[in-house]
């Protein structure tokens, strides 16, 4: 079961790479249009130090932007659910803001915050924080009505209602928002680097495209994809660790119920 989940996609990927390699060789595609996988691999080895340094930079910007989106997005979601006044005032502003393409305001951010890492972190944050807010707010609002009635019947405070019912209930929704946000944060960081930077994979892509080093562009793309996948699974692992009660919803875990039946329930 577990083998299938890893082996099958890996085999598919391998087949794709082989087809790619063969196509480039058979049709004699020029290297600056589409380099062969082996050529890309060679470039990756050759430029390993530069790629490593720049990817660390992009990684740092994406993660920082993501953390900022959680740090600001979650309290914002709580505020929206907490008070109807805040909901009516904040939500339209958020929506308005979200409808502005972040790519379009990236130059402005660079202008305000400079060429350094701060502007990239802010752009990554801007691109990533919306799903965190929306998903967390949805999770907070969709708490079970009977459960809320139950604590209210015991004269709970609103804070207790949040701490004991709404927040734990919202955690799975928060994590699905976070998983979207982390991949968006990588995109945001790259956008920032495209617009103005002297470091990072986005900057390297821009630089290599202008000098027709397509193999280096592909090397960057591969690293970016790997980074995105790694970060996604990092969040998923954290979710798995933090929410042991929610594990059964992640497929494969039909076991606990079976065990209970075995114990004579």
């Amino acid at each position: 079961m577990k083998l299938h989940r890893i082996a099958l996609p890996a085999l598919n990927l391998l087949a794709l790479v082989i087809a790619w390699e063969l196509a480039v060789r058979i049709f004699r595609v020029p290297e600056f249009v589409l380099p062969a996988p082996t050529a890309i691999l060679a470039t990756m080895v050759k430029h390993a130090p530069a790629l490593w340094r720049n990817s660390l930079f992009t990684l740092y910007e994406s993660v920082a932007g993501f953390l900022l989106s959680v740090l600001i997005g979650v309290p914002l979601a709580i505020a929206i659910v907490w008070s109807a006044y805040l909901r009516n005032t904040l939500y339209p502003i958020l929506l308005l803001f979200q409808s502005i393409p972040k790519t379009a305001i990236a130059p402005l951010i660079i202008l305000w915050l400079g060429y350094g890492d701060l502007s990239k972190i802010v752009i990554a944050f801007l691109v990533a924080f919306f799903p965190v807010v929306v998903d967390t707010a949805m999770g907070l609002m969709s708490a079970d009505g009977d459960a809320l009635d139950l604590v209210r019947s015991l004269r709970s405070t609103r804070w207790q209602e949040f701490v004991h019912i709404r927040m734990p209930h919202a955690l799975p929704a928060f994590f699905s928002g976070a998983k979207v946000a982390i991949t968006l944060a990588v995109i945001g960081a790259v956008i920032g680097e495209f617009v103005g930077a002297s470091n990072g994979l986005g900057y390297l892509i821009l630089l290599s495209t202008s000098s027709l080093q397509t193999d280096l562009v592909f090397a960057c793309l591969i690293i970016l994809a790997a980074q995105g996948i790694m970060l996604f699974y990092l969040i998923e692992s954290i979710e798995w660790l933090v929410l042991p009660w929610n594990r059964s919803s992640h497929a494969q875990m039909a076991e606990p119920a079976f065990n209970a039946a075995g114990r004579g329930g």
Binding site: D144, D146, A147, L150, H164, P168, L243, W245, N246
Partner: peptide, 10 residues
């Protein structure tokens, strides 16, 4: 209640 309404994280 009709449904147990247990908190699944507890």
């Amino acid at each position: 209640f009709q449904t147990p309404t247990l908190l699944k994280w507890r």
